[in-house]
Amino acid sequence: MNHQLLHIFRNSPLGRETLLQSIYFSKQVKVTPVVYIPKFTKFLMYFENDVVQIDLDDSYLMSQDTALEHATELLEQAGVEPRFFDPKHYTASTLPDIHTNFDYMSCPRSISDLSSKIGLGYIGPRVRRIVKSAQFPVLITSPVYKKWESIAVFFGGSVNAFNALKLGFRICRISGMLLDVFTLVENKSQESYEKLITDEDLEKEMSRYVNKWHFLKNRTLGENLYDVPHNALVVLGAYGHHLLKTFVFGSKMEKIQSTISNNLLIVGPNYTAVI
């Protein structure tokens, strides 16, 4: 249990849902949740080649006197030893630095805008920057606490998709949950996706961990996504394509997150998965 998940605690009903989700994820994946209770509305995360300032909305500072008590209570109820993050370094007196040596980070869909924007179809710009820069996967929680009982990996053949697939294997191995792989068949044939797996030498893992490989052939993405179990943790890669393709055709990650309400585990371009 020396892997850690960073959770930014919001002392509100919504924050409770998010923390419950993080605790559930941590228990399944056997990582230690490390909770940061913000004392200021902003903090900095220094990544390898980027610095991201997170501007939290005011609800994160609500009832500061009870925040620690509430977070401890939720963690203890779940049988998890409370572990809190206390920033050691400050870029400015009101600007703490949060280190980035975590294995996972949990975010609501938006952490810097009003809670009204947490609905589907909106991922805040800071969350995007974190996903793009982080060397860890980002858990984007569903708006309400929802236990996931299987794993669904979206695999499209990109580098990030391979990382997502390997992460899926890893979570499957640790949690013992069923793993389904979903591939949106576009211009390629089913065989070409299978060949990609063979080329990457992942056939053995596919047969060991994968329950079923779904090839989705419906016309619209919405129809295809109905096949994804509502209680699955969806693992997918993001920002794996170059800007122009994303600009013209849109990002798969954006489309998926705006359609399904599952918990999402998003793998950015700087994450390297180990099974």
Partner: peptide, 11 residues
């Protein structure tokens, strides 16, 4: 500070 601790990363 940024030069000392974070390889000169600035917003």
């Amino acid at each position: 500070y940024s030069v000392s601790r974070y390889g000169g990363l600035l917003r």
